[in-house]
Every structure is written in C-alpha cells, then in structure tokens.
Amino acid sequence: MISPAARDALQDWLAYQKSLRGAPQTTLDAYGRDVSDFLAFITEHKGEAQGLRALERISVTEMRAWMAFTRGDGVGPRSLARKLSAVKSFFRWLSEREGIEPTAVLSARSPKYQRKLPRPLSPDAAQDVIDTLSFQTTQPWIGKRDEAVVTLLYGCGLRISEALGLLGSDLPLGEALRITGKGGKERIVPVIAPAREAVERYIAACPYPMEADQPVFRGARGGPLNPRTLQQTMARVRMQLGLPSTATPHAMRHSFATHLLNAGGDLRAIQELLGHASLSTTQTYTAVDTSRLMEVYARTHPRAK
C-alpha cells in the first residue's frame, strides 16, 4: 500500500503538472498510473509503505528490479521508457520541493527502442484526402467542417487538439494564429489562404452561432467536435482512396512538416511552427526524408537491382 504522504505528494505533483505546465487530462491519467505503479512496486519490494524520506533511499539495484519486473509483465521498451520518464519527473519535483536526493532514480537508463518514423502522405494524396472529406456526409456543413479541420492540420501543422481548441474569439482567422500547445507553450502559426477560406466556408454553413467562448468546430448536435469523429471520417476516406492505415488526421501534420522540409524549409523554423520543445523531435523528419530517398535509390539505381 502506498503511504499517505507519498499519495499526497503524487496528487500535488499532478496538480502542478496541470496548473503550471498545462498537461492535458489524458497525460495526467497516464502519469498517475505510471508513478502509482512504481510506488506500489517499491512498497511491495521493500515490504513496507514508503514515506517521503524512505523514497530517497531507493537504490540503483531497486530501479533495475522495477524495470525488469515491468518488462516481465509484458510492457514494451517504448512504454517502459515513458513510465521511467514520469517517475523521473516526479522525483525531480520531490527533490525541488522536499529536498529528496533523486540520484539513484535519475541515473536509471532508459531502455533503447526503435523510434517509429512519421508516415507522411504524398502532396497529391494529402490533397485527395481534403477533396474527398466533404463527400462523407449528407449534411453539407459537416463536410465543410471536416475539410476545414484537416486543412488546418495540413496547411498550418496544427495538432488535432489545437485545431479543435479554437474558439469563436479566434475568428476571423487572419494571416497568423496564436496557438497554445503542449505544456502551455505559445507559438505564432502562419495561416495560409486555403485554410482561411476553408474555415470561412464552414462558418458560413454551420447552423450554430460562433460565440466567443465556444469551440469553432461543433459536433452534429452542437457540442465540441470529438476527435474520434474526425478519425472515423478519415478511416472512411483512406479506404476509398486506397491509402494505408497510417493516413490518420495526425499524419496530415507530419505531411505538413515533411513537405516543408522537402521544399528546403529550415529545420529550426519548422520546429517553431510545429511547437516542438526539442529540435531532436523535429529532426525525425530528416530521417523520414532520408528514408524516402533511400527507397527511391533502391528502386532506380542500376547497381541496386
């Protein structure tokens, strides 16, 4: 059983993640599960509830035991790396707030895993997706809505949560948009003309008023548009177009970045447009481009045949 002091500390840390760092609820839920599972393991491993002072006596050996136990429970290296990251973040916070020595926890090495490369669509396929979206419903305003959202993902590189988070107060869209992304980080995103025009067509057709404190993109009954609804629509579109299962709404954002890079875009500028905290995340698209070039090489070079 987790000690009351450790449980209270966990709740305070989650509140900090929400209020000061702007973590979404899905992330908070995952953090809570990951750290709770870790604390429960340490409690059982040591045979007694671990108060805050006891937590700083966690050893490197015990960290290895937890990681081995978690892997043995069927958790893959990518998921284990995520869990370890949450635990380390919690202990950094404990160190700053309670003066707990976190060295053993922070020195635990994350497992290596093969990073999945984004799977962008070709420019023609991306345009085909946008052109096909409006034919997935008998209600014209809903077709215009889906087209507007996906055009924002592809034309501006927005995350789906960022597009669906737009409020009536953000209208009318100008040539740039202030977006609050992960961790509450703000960025300015240029809005291309096709994206502005798609949103304008949707607004003109939408049966619900664009109130300042209400979401721009509405569901069929007027509530906020559920991202799952858009994902299901994209699934129908990719089946019609014969696209792979990786052709998701988020793939449109990947396509935005990859197509900019292919056109000679600066990696730092693309990082700012996407709202990536680390350049290494944006550099993934360099790997995508290299992978694509190697595929072309393998198909066309005489010595590769």
Rank of each mutant, 00 (worst) to 15 (best):
P123C: 04
Y208W: 15
P215K: 06
Q214W: 03
P123R: 00
S122Q: 06
A205F: 13
L167K: 06
P172I: 08
P123E: 03
R187G: 07
P209S: 14
Y208L: 06
Q136E: 15
A176S: 14
V216L: 08
I203K: 11
A212P: 11
D170E: 08
R196D: 10
A163V: 13
C156Q: 02
G219T: 08
L167A: 03
G143K: 00
T132D: 12
R159C: 03
P207G: 07
D170W: 04
P118H: 05
E197I: 14
P123N: 03
R119W: 07
A193V: 12
R119G: 03
Y202G: 09
P140Q: 01
Q139N: 14
T132I: 03
V149R: 02
P190F: 01
G183N: 12
F217P: 06
Y154T: 06
S169H: 04
G157H: 00
L173W: 08
L152G: 03
A220V: 15
P215Y: 05
E200D: 14
M210D: 09
I160C: 00
K144A: 15
V129A: 06
R221H: 15
A148K: 02
G155P: 03
L117V: 01
I203P: 01
I179D: 02
Y154W: 05
F217D: 04
S134Y: 12
A212R: 15
K182A: 13
G143L: 01
I179S: 04
L153H: 08
V149F: 04
G222D: 03
P190T: 00
A163L: 02
L117A: 10
P118A: 12
L173F: 13
R187F: 09
G157A: 01
E200F: 10
D213R: 12
S134F: 10
A212N: 08
T180D: 08
D124H: 09
D146G: 09
E147Q: 15
S122M: 00
P140R: 02
E175C: 02
E162C: 01
A148L: 08
K182M: 11
L158N: 01
A198P: 07
A193T: 15
E197N: 13
V199I: 09
